[in-house]
Simulated assay, not measured.
Amino acid sequence: MPVSPIPIPPVPRPLPELLPPGASGFAVVDLETTGTGQLCRIVEIALLLLSPEGELQQEWTTLINPGVPIPNAAVHGIDDALASTAPAFSDVAPELAGLLDGRVVVAHNLDRGCLPGQIRGPILRHHFWAAGSYHPELVVDLGDGIDTMPAPFLSLGKLCAARGITLTGEDAHTALGDTRALAALLRHGLPHLHPSRAAARVAGSASAARPASLRPRPSGLPQPAPPSHDWLPTTVTIPSTGGTIAFLGEDAHGWDFKVQKALEHAISLGLTPVPLDPAALADLMAVSSVFIDRPLMRRLRNAGTSVVESKAFLEAQSGQVLPGQRWGER
């Protein structure tokens, strides 16, 4: 009887083989943001520059003033008061672009879309695009980059644990702590990584930019005070046939696969999809996540509008009462 060959585990590529010709090294990036969705705002960014062999060349980090209220300070410890004295992204954009130029961007969930609300690439690209209003000569192409997210999907903490790399509770949800862990993973070797075909490229005056006044996260940062407002439990009723429903997803257009499935279910219930308009609300508001942060969601929060997450809506029938949430004072 023939013996099945023993499978040979894949061998990680040497780090220089992950770089395209002409790339000067890696730029390991992580962000903390005001929530999920491609239009959320950055509140902290960290960057580790590595040589082609993975040696640390520079650490760069700063808090960012997002210019909007921060509803999720309990997640990353950065509240409105702490961010108020930090630079805006447009202030640091030229310096950051100069550091990225010629390097391959590395991030966890860079562009894979497996965790739609936390895709680093689109968030960073949108911020550079918005910074163009202040620096019209600055054009940033992040290249294709390297995404460390494996399949099946694993959070950074779980991936570190699987490789024997420590990501302490103090480091988790800090941009600098996550980039250090990610750099350690890169040096350790990850067999699922694919070589980059294009490093980041910058046109404009990034190379001549004056260093911005950075504001790194203070060490030993205390946990922020409990927020005065939060998502509170409430109930929503599924409209009967002919009722209206509006949706909000996490991509730049307010759409995603969760919304698509919710739309199909709404049509099966005889509901009428309508555009989301905070001034003329539909009978039911379904969102992919209450942690989405974008202008429309801020208006819903400020108005105390009751919403239901699409996952719960998918199990509902006409007339059913479901648990929902609304933003209000604790």
Rank of each mutant, 00 (worst) to 15 (best):
I6Y: 10
I8S: 12
P10M: 02
V11P: 00
R13N: 03
P16M: 08
E17H: 14
P20L: 07
P21M: 11
S24G: 09
V29H: 07
D30Y: 06
L31I: 03
G37C: 06
I42H: 09
I42R: 07
L47M: 07
P52N: 09
G54K: 13
E55L: 11
W60V: 02
T61G: 05
P69R: 08
A73H: 00
V75A: 07
D91R: 14
A93G: 13
A93M: 08
L100F: 12
D101Q: 13
G102S: 07
V106D: 10
D111I: 00
C114N: 14
L115K: 12
G117K: 11
H127A: 14
H127K: 09
A130L: 15
A131F: 10
E137L: 06
L142F: 09
M149C: 13
L154V: 05
K158T: 09
C160R: 06
A162W: 01
T166H: 05
L167M: 12
G169P: 02
D171H: 13
L176R: 12
L186N: 06
P191F: 08
H192K: 03
L193H: 13
A199P: 09
A199C: 11
R201L: 11
G204K: 11
G204Y: 09
A206E: 04
A212Y: 05
A212Q: 13
P216W: 01
P226W: 05
L232C: 01
L232Q: 13
P233G: 00
I238S: 00
T244M: 04
D251L: 10
D251V: 00
E264W: 02
H265T: 07
A279K: 13
M285T: 15
P295I: 06
L300E: 02
T305W: 10
T305A: 14
A312H: 13
Q320W: 04
P323Q: 13
